[in-house]
Simulated assay, not measured.
Amino acid sequence: MFDRLTLWVTRTLEVCIALCLAAMGILVLGNVVLRYGFNSGLVFSEEISRLLFVWLTFLGTILASREHAHLGVDSLVRRLPHGGRQACILISGVLMILMCILLFWGSLKQAGINLDNTMPVSGIPYAVLYAAGIAAALGLIVSIFYNIFQALVHGEQEANIVMVRHTDDMIEGAVADVETDTSRREGKTA
């Protein structure tokens, strides 16, 4: 049940990020074509693109945390015994949660301050911009708690103890997923 929920949340984040990126591309490309081709433009394009970029970035941090894709140095952690690895994950997780609480608090205060201030062209309140920090902080806190839980409860699995995924491992995993999906499809059609 919980695995399906986390998969659904992960897929939803991926779709939101893809939609933000697509909308940004359409707005910027459309504005360039209109400016150079027709000597006009979309006046709100820059503001909306900037807003989408901020949301894309903050949603991406949640997704990267969930998939262990953030940059990290694991040379010390890999040399520690099992209990030392779990202790490092617990300590670093608590510190990250404290930073997320600061991000949440600061973003919440900024959103409150800027609730009445609107972007000059689109009229969207600046609070929407700072709400990205609120969403990211909450999503990261949940993701970090989940990572800590996985490391402490299911720590016998190497993937739950080492929180850094190497690029080669990510590529091999993606290729294996594609091959599995392809074999499933072929099995259904046969």
Results as ranks from 00 to 15, higher is better:
residue 151 A to C: 14
residue 115 L to D: 01
residue 117 N to A: 02
residue 152 L to A: 10
residue 57 T to D: 04
residue 155 G to Y: 14
residue 53 F to D: 15
residue 167 T to Q: 09
residue 70 H to T: 01
residue 161 I to F: 06
residue 104 F to V: 13
residue 61 T to L: 00
residue 172 E to F: 11
residue 127 A to Y: 00
residue 66 R to L: 01
residue 86 Q to F: 07
residue 146 Y to F: 14
residue 91 I to E: 04
residue 120 P to G: 05
residue 93 G to Y: 06
residue 88 C to M: 14
residue 189 T to Q: 13
residue 1 M to F: 02
residue 163 M to K: 14
residue 2 F to T: 14
residue 44 F to M: 04
residue 72 G to I: 01
residue 86 Q to Y: 07
residue 114 N to T: 13
residue 117 N to D: 09
residue 23 A to H: 10
residue 82 H to C: 03
residue 137 A to I: 05
residue 133 G to W: 00
residue 161 I to N: 11
residue 46 E to V: 06
residue 162 V to D: 02
residue 1 M to L: 12
residue 123 G to I: 03
residue 32 V to M: 10
residue 3 D to Y: 08
residue 28 V to E: 05
residue 14 E to T: 14
residue 105 W to F: 13
residue 73 V to A: 14
residue 14 E to Y: 05
residue 57 T to Y: 14
residue 109 K to I: 15
residue 106 G to E: 14
residue 62 I to K: 02
residue 48 I to M: 07
residue 105 W to R: 03
residue 139 G to Q: 03
residue 127 A to I: 13
residue 69 A to V: 06
residue 45 S to I: 00
residue 20 C to W: 02
residue 81 P to A: 09
residue 140 L to N: 06
residue 133 G to D: 01
residue 130 Y to T: 08
residue 165 R to F: 02
residue 136 A to G: 02
residue 62 I to R: 05
residue 4 R to S: 05
residue 15 V to I: 07
residue 57 T to V: 06
residue 36 Y to H: 09
residue 48 I to S: 07
residue 185 R to A: 12
residue 160 N to F: 13
residue 91 I to M: 10
residue 143 S to A: 15
residue 114 N to F: 15
residue 13 L to Q: 12
residue 6 T to E: 01
residue 180 T to Q: 12
residue 58 F to E: 10
residue 87 A to T: 15
residue 102 L to P: 01
residue 150 Q to P: 09
residue 188 K to N: 13
residue 140 L to Y: 04
residue 169 D to L: 10
residue 175 V to N: 05
residue 184 R to K: 15
residue 21 L to Q: 11
residue 71 L to P: 01
residue 160 N to R: 11
residue 186 E to W: 08
residue 33 V to A: 08
residue 3 D to L: 03
residue 29 L to T: 06
residue 6 T to W: 03
residue 91 I to Y: 07
residue 39 N to R: 09
residue 176 A to Y: 09
residue 71 L to W: 09
residue 176 A to W: 11
residue 50 R to P: 12
residue 89 I to D: 02
residue 87 A to R: 07
